[in-house]
Amino acid sequence: MLEIKNLHVKLEEEDKQILKGVDLKVGEGEVHAIMGPNGSGKSTTSYVLSGRDGYEVTEGEVLLDGENILELEPEERAAAGLFLAFQYPVEIPGVGNMTFLRTAVNAQRKARGEEELSATDFLKEIRAKAKSLQIDAEMLKRPVNVGFSGGEKKRNEILQMAMLEPKLCILDETDSGLDVDAMKLVSEGVNALRDGKRSFIVITHYQRLLDHIKPDVVHIMSNGRIIKSGGPELALEVENNGYADLLAEVEQA
């Protein structure tokens, strides 16, 4: 599904290396968690995967189903099945949430040579999916993320994911800012999308989320690299002991 090979990334504007050789392989239907201290490069990895400006890849490649996506525009990557749930979802005044979603769904369909979704089918689908995430009709009408609470923004990301049905979902701290109930709701939303084929990268600081969304593999990122990978127990270790021991261990090696 996804293969990141020796990815080196620096900022375009300044001489600052942020990713220093990231290697990651996510198979079909798998859930991978990435944890790591603040500033270690988790969001940068997700942005580079989705094609945001401002970064320069100096080495390495990213293959999605065998295709190097680094040459693709963000919209082409989306149409190829990549989705990023933003750590900080963007507010877009003046663009209705519903219009936004319909435009996105149909743009992707068009790019893949599929027929556009009719207005009624779209409505039916979005209503059902919004309901399961407890997003009310009024929120769908409002401008994208404008005036949404932190938790509402995150639920809105998951709604978009559910509507766009991507192959690979990257969730960047989707759990931050969520109350206990919302966390359950969002996790259920994510789990509902697990169909044995769709893959997930879940970036988080907390074990809690991983109780709901069970990862196959847990990676620890530090200073622009994946320094350790393991099973779910690795997340528990971080939760109990923090990163100090892990970092020391790597330094010694």
């Binding site: 094609g51 525009e73 963000p74 989306a78 149409a79 877009i92 435009t103 992707q108």
Partner: peptide, 17 residues
């Protein structure tokens, strides 16, 4: 970028904005 990351091509996204 947010719009493009959802699959909306640049020109269309610019019009929407």
């Amino acid at each position: 970028f947010y719009l493009r990351s959802r699959g909306v091509p640049t020109a269309e996204a610019t019009d929407l904005l």
